[in-house]
Write a protein that binds this DNA or RNA. Structure first.
Lengths: 236, 236
DNA sequence: GCGCAAAAAATTGTATACAATTTCGCCGCC
DNA sequence: GGCGGCGAAATTGTATACAATTTTTTGCGC
């Protein structure tokens, strides 16, 4: 597979301790092992990974640039807790960029790429039929990976990195506001998108992608929670 | 003006030393006071701002996340030196997102926003008629600001921040590969885009924006430099 | 003068120490 | 029982120290 960041991956073999800690925390967030709002103290992180606060701090700062962690001056770092408005913006951003990424990917896609996407779909389907929290988490990851793989195929490292951020932040939003217990990514919708790409019907593929994103968003309950709580309190 | 990051700006009044240093360095890069490839040692940066290496390091790390600085393990930090391929990707990313941002901005734009955009155009025009390096730099900044203001009007903080990164990185690319001495942003093109937005002809506005971005990119000389150098050497 | 090896200097990576700020726990009062 | 004040503990912000790595300088031989 062609990859715009293949060169960077060679570089990443020289990655620092802070980057490894960042990656581990990101994974824990995306896989819902760390909940939105969780306090991440530098000491705790440092102790957990057997490093000093220096590396913990660097890792948390890096995650704050990605929007996964919120660092508040003098108060510490927390797993980000996106507001409903922020959630809307994340999905608006996805609607804005994903069709374009899809078009770029479709222009460059190879049969091997298609195979890999299909393989990912199989894996997704397999995880859906499994029970347990671990399978749920892996399923969430696999479904996000579909979008990330398209971004990778597009060959634009900048868009790929942006997409990585959007997907990670989406998973936070879904963890917070999702109403269904599934991954919220319609498994069959991924298949339909691939099929449309294969038949070179890009308008249809983009339409399906937008529908897919809307579907994910529709599953979220983004009503203002505080207002709702008060309203319900007085109606009882 | 409505701004998606107005709340964050209140927060930024509590910004740390590292963030102020990051901002100062970013400005120096964007305004071409720091050239692509310049080494930025932690000690030098710390001495320059009268802080220890800790804050310098944090600032440089932040800038590396934005793509303006390249941090190489054990070797130090350098003002980024985008390759021709990277340059192409930056402009491809702009072509992908800017029409969408423009449409979102157009949907929300107020007469006050239009006034402000026009004011920016006036300023751009004024700077164009001035001589000197300082005016050149300010002109470059003002022309990038047009794009940033549209992103701000769009009301999506995530897209706004991404656009900030793209504009900053574009200015590095233009500094490196630009052939004309002007800002490369066609001043009259900004005006045409505003006019199209005002008449609600968004298809035309988007077309103009794409043309505008293409115009900027066309002014770049992205041929591989080394090959060209050797070729010329043997032809002499 | 050039190339190589070794030493010295500079710089980066990380831990630790100290200063500043926030949070927590306890106590007294209403 | 709740609130406020105060002191202690915890945590964050930043400088400094030490270890590791890279770069530069020096000395020597050809």
């Amino acid at each position: 597979m062609k990859s715009a960041v293949k060169a960077q991956q060679a570089e990443d073999s020289a990655e620092t301790g802070a980057q490894q800690i960042r990656d581990a925390i990101r994974e824990a967030i995306v896989e819902r092992r760390l909940s939105p709002g969780t306090k991440l103290s530098e000491s705790d992180v440092g102790n957990l990974f057997n490093v000093s606060r220096t590396l913990a701090r660097a890792a948390l700062q890096a995650l704050s640039y990605e929007g996964l962690v919120s660092v508040e001056k003098n108060r510490g770092a927390f797993v980000a807790y996106p507001s409903p408005d922020e959630a809307r913006q994340i999905f608006a951003a996805r609607r804005l960029v994903e069709p374009g990424i899809l078009r770029e990917a479709a222009a460059r896609i190879t049969p091997a790429d298609i195979s890999q996407l299909r393989q990912l779909l199989l894996e997704e389907g397999r995880l859906m039929s499994e029970r347990g929290q671990t399978a749920r988490r892996a399923e969430i990851k696999a479904s996000g990976d579909f979008h990330l793989m398209l971004a990778e195929i597009s060959g634009n490292a900048i868009m790929q990195r942006f997409m990585e951020e959007l997907v990670a932040r989406s998973s936070l939003v879904i963890a917070l506001y999702g109403q269904s217990t599934a991954s919220s990514c319609g498994h069959s919708e991924h298949g339909d998108i691939i099929a449309a790409i294969e038949t070179d019907d890009l308008d249809r593929a983009c339409q399906l992608m937008l529908h897919h994103i809307a579907h994910i968003e529709a599953d979220l309950d983004l009503r203002e929670r505080k207002s709702l709580g008060l309203k319900e309190a007085f109606e009882l």
